[in-house]
Design a protein around this nucleic acid. Structure first.
Length: 622
DNA sequence: GCTCTAACCTAATCATCGG
DNA sequence: CCGATGATTAGGTTAGAGC
């Protein structure tokens, strides 16, 4: 009875998301009968996987916790208040008190009807949206791009399952009846980007470039836990500056390609395992810097040994600089702190003590929403959407993260007003009765708001869906904000600094946080992208165009801006030409070429120079 | 309790980059 | 060209949310 169900089952009600619940959940320590094949993502009887991390964290309240503890000879949980315990390599069991950041899985996103309708509409148009479309849709719906991607994955399965065949090309017509589709027999293994009929398939996400130092951090984490939960991934995202979704993929690939990282099984073997390629190529010195250090002493504040000292398995003790977004040159700061109940972004995300000035925190709508349990939001707050390749040699270190205090990582915003609401409102539809006003802020930030009056309605209408009266209830809002909040909440990124210095940030522009969500869209109302513009004006290479590992940013037309066609409009347009197989959103706005990247390969010098150019800008070194 | 579906995982494969 | 590795897809499973 190898039941994963026995494993970690964090009690969301308590907001406990065990940081390492994953650890518990993954390993299958039971004498399964029949033994599980190990194919499961969460369970494996095969010792090969050695899924139990060295730390052997246990969760309170987990159904499987007790047995696991027994199996591991772990002591019983502390009486009260403990959330989880970790056993470090030395065998010391450490209990952490207080809410744990998050659990193994990210909070489940509850899509609103209107959001689903929009997704459905797009799905009918194209079940294989490219990165550009996904991002755009994500922006307009106020959810993370990765969520959109997952939704499409699940949706394809649901649809294909029903119809037993993949959508040839998703002709708008057949969609209406999901199941109704007769479905041609055999279903192609899998649509290839270049496969016929898919010729129009959009471009993939640009390859993320993981620097050696970032790889080092990831590898270390991997050795400790091959199955990091959302909390751990977010943590890594903060440390590395790589978007959490990319971290997740990295681990997937890593697991697939480095199955035997720790042959000796749980525990330790990791250390003895031969270094992976990345390891080899990573200078030792760099490796030790894993845990980003404080800005000042670039990499000395914390002894190299510190990194290893902080077993990933015991993330509870590492409170990252919280700056969700690791932005341009933002050093990551991690320091040890006593686990305290509000320190870790529990459901309630109490702001950390020394809340460093976070520019956006003030004006950012996203921030406003902090603290809300919003359901929709899932975006890992810290998700540095804009993955900015660090400049090697930078004093800020590689895994630079913002030297900020742990910030309340708004996991989900109760977003008074979600993007969708905004859309609906704009369309004259009754938006969620919710909160509201604060919404003002949101509105300002909402990408797709202005300019696109009844887009949603149109889309829905085109899709045959009822113009969603939208979210009934206060809908916590999926957080359009959530998506951006990550960007906001965090440390001031270069852009933020620039904005602060220039006052540009006055515009509650959409996703101003360059480091935000999966992708930071720096579009500012009225202007393409301040960031891009600035970078471009400075002649910073790579600014205007995407470059490897960069996160494309729609610099041009932005859905949120009046005048810029929204995705929905695009869909509508496409729908008009039904026989036209999906093709990449054509208009300029869509053009990938229009996209710019936030991740300018800035060198520290560039960075400094940039800052210097900004009047009143303190500048990093300043 | 049941259903639906978001989240996650594996395996396979494509795409891109650097040597 | 080839190896390494990021991205994506199909398909399987778990678990949260809502009825």
């Amino acid at each position: 009875m190898c039941r994963r169900s026995l494993l970690a089952n964090p009690s969301p009600k308590e907001g406990l998301d065990p940081v390492v619940s994953e650890s518990i959940r993954t390993p299958c320590l039971f004498p399964c009968e029949p033994p599980c094949d190990g194919k499961h993502g969460l369970c494996s009887c095969q010792p090969r996987e050695a899924r139990l991390p060295p730390t052997g964290i246990v969760m309170e309240g987990n159904l499987g916790a007790a047995p696991l503890r027994r199996l591991h000879g772990m002591p019983p949980p502390p009486p009260d208040g403990w959330k989880h315990a970790a056993v470090d390599r030395s065998g010391v069991v450490v209990f952490t008190v207080g809410p744990v950041a998050t659990g193994s899985r990210r909070r489940r996103l509850v899509l609103r009807l209107s959001q689903k309708d929009a997704l459905q509409a797009l799905f009918q148009q194209n079940p294989y949206p490219g990165i550009a479309t996904r991002e755009r849709l994500a922006r307009e719906l106020g959810i993370a791009e990765s969520r959109v991607q997952v939704w499409f994955q699940n949706q394809r399965r649901r649809r294909f399952k029903q119809s037993r065949s993949p959508p040839e090309h998703v002709h708008p017509e057949g969609e209406a009846g999901p199941t109704s589709t007769p479905a041609p027999p055999s279903r192609p293994p899998r649509p290839q980007p270049s496969s016929p009929g898919d010729s129009a398939r959009e471009a993939r996400r640009k390859r993320t470039v993981v620097s050696p130092s970032q790889t080092s951090i990831l590898v270390q984490a991997f050795r400790r836990d091959r199955f990091p939960g959302i909390a751990a991934r977010e943590e890594l995202a903060r440390q590395t500056g790589i978007p959490e979704p990319r971290i997740q993929v990295w681990f997937q690939n890593r697991r697939a390609r480095h199955p035997q990282q720790s042959p000796s099984g749980p525990g330790g073997a990791a250390a003895t395992t031969p270094p992976a390629p990345e390891d080899r190529r990573t200078p030792p010195a760099v490796q030790s810097t894993s845990p980003p250090l404080r800005p000042s002493p670039p990499q000395e504040s914390m002894p190299p040994s510190a990194a290893p000292a902080a077993p990933f398995g015991a993330p509870a003790f590492w409170v990252p600089g919280t700056a969700p977004g690791v932005c341009v040159g933002q050093p990551l700061m991690i320091f040890m702190v006593q686990p305290s109940p509000g320190a870790l972004r529990p459901s309630g995300k109490p702001p950390p003590p020394a809340q460093v000035a976070v520019p956006w925190a003030v004006s950012s709508p996203a921030v406003t929403a902090l603290g809300q349990p919003g359901q929709g939001a899932i975006l890992p707050p810290a998700q540095p959407e804009a993955h900015i390749p660090r400049w090697p040699g930078s004093p800020y270190g590689e895994g630079a993260a913002p030297p900020l205090e742990p910030q309340p990582q708004p996991r989900s915003l109760p977003s008074p007003t979600s993007l969708l609401d905004g859309l609906l409102a704009a369309a004259g539809a009754p938006a969620s009765p919710g909160p509201s006003p604060g919404a003002a802020a949101d509105h300002g930030v909402d990408p797709a708001l202005p300019g696109a009056p009844s887009l949603l309605d149109e889309l829905l209408a085109a899709a045959g869906a009822p113009a969603s009266p939208a979210s009934p209830g206060p809908s916590p809002g999926p957080s359009a904000v959530a998506v951006r909040q990550a960007a906001l909440a965090g440390t001031p990124s270069l852009v933020e600094q620039i904005s602060a210095a220039t006052g540009i940030h006055a515009t509650p522009g959409p996703s101003l946080g360059p480091c935000a969500g999966e992708r930071a869209h720096l579009a500012l109302p009225g202007s393409p992208s301040v960031q891009v513009a600035l970078l471009a004006s400075l002649g910073i290479p790579g600014s205007p165009g995407p470059f490897p590992g960069s996160s494309p940013v729609v610099a041009g037309a932005h859905p949120a801006f009046p005048g810029s066609p929204s995705l929905i409009e695009e869909i509508l347009a496409a729908t008009a030409t039904r026989d036209t197989p999906w093709s990449p959103p054509g208009p300029p706005a869509w053009d990938e070429g229009v996209e710019a990247t936030l991740e300018a390969p800035l060198s520290e010098e560039d960075y400094q120079a940039l800052l210097d150019m900004l009047p009143g800008s303190p500048g990093p070194g300043a």
